[in-house]
């Protein structure tokens, strides 16, 4: 789904990792929009019944976070978000429920492993808002092992941009080219690709393989290859795990 790109940043709209949210040019998923803005936008788009459901779901999640009973009420709300809000709004609704429940890595891992593909995608979108460090990387790695392009795309949001190591990130970019996931889905692509000679080599090899098989080379490959040639990586935040405590 598409959310308007947030153009302003206030202290309470920072992501959990301290990065001001909404600054990414790929800011078109709930991973890129500060939760407060996400809620305002979603509320404006929902019909009356869905809006009432969302308000109640978020109140319940805030009042009863954590694990309780056979299944926590906020996890029930996650499961039913699609039929309550409609598929187009389910990702945003689910991210907001997880945010309201202040879900930590353990809770997100449970929700992911017990979730449908749609719920798993929403967890991936929620990571930058809820997990400050690299603890949730196994979820990203799990999603990148799938061949579900919706999960692969969601896995490569701001959380992966910040935390995924170079080897896995390069393979993820290559997998996008293999499976037709637009590289526009890859958060922070230009910064991470810049000066990455190994990625450039992998791209060139893939292009050669395609050409040898008399197949076309994806346009996105040329775009990423151009990005690798645009200079050395920027210091500091460009280094995965570099700024987390």
């Amino acid at each position: 789904m598409t959310q308007p790109h947030a153009t302003h940043v206030t202290p309470d709209t920072q992501d959990a990792d301290g990065t001001p949210a909404g600054q990414d040019p790929q800011g078109t998923t709930p991973a890129h929009v500060p939760p407060a803005d996400l809620r305002a936008t979603l509320t404006a788009q929902l019909g009356q019944a869905a809006r009432a459901w969302l308000d109640q779901a978020l109140d319940e999640a805030a009042a009863h976070p954590g694990t309780h009973g056979p299944i926590s009420v906020w996890e029930l709300r996650l499961a039913e978000a699609g039929r309550r809000c409609g598929p187009a709004h389910a990702d945003a609704a689910r991210v907001l429920v997880m945010h309201a429940a202040r879900a930590d890595t353990d809770a997100l891992t449970r929700v992911y492993t017990q979730g449908t593909a749609d719920e798993r995608r929403a967890v991936l979108h929620a990571l930058p808002h809820l997990v400050p460090g690299p603890d949730a990387l196994p979820l990203v790695e799990d999603a990148l092992r799938t061949n579900d392009t919706r999960l692969v795309a969601a896995a490569l949001g701001p959380y992966a941009a910040r935390h995924l190591d170079a080897h896995q990130w390069r393979h993820a970019v290559l997998k996008c080219l293999f499976t037709g996931v637009p590289v526009d889905s890859v958060a922070d692509l230009a910064r991470r690709a810049r000066g990455d000679d190994e990625l450039a080599r992998m791209l060139a090899d893939y292009a050669a393989e395609r050409t040898a098989a008399d197949r076309t080379v994806p346009e996105d490959l040329h775009r990423v290859l151009a990005l690798t040639e645009s200079g050395r990586p920027a210091p500091g935040p460009a280094d995965p795990h570099g700024k987390e405590s």
Partner: peptide, 10 residues
Amino acid sequence: HEGNSILRGG
């Protein structure tokens, strides 16, 4: 991708 995304990508 080429009309088929049930690919064995990578």
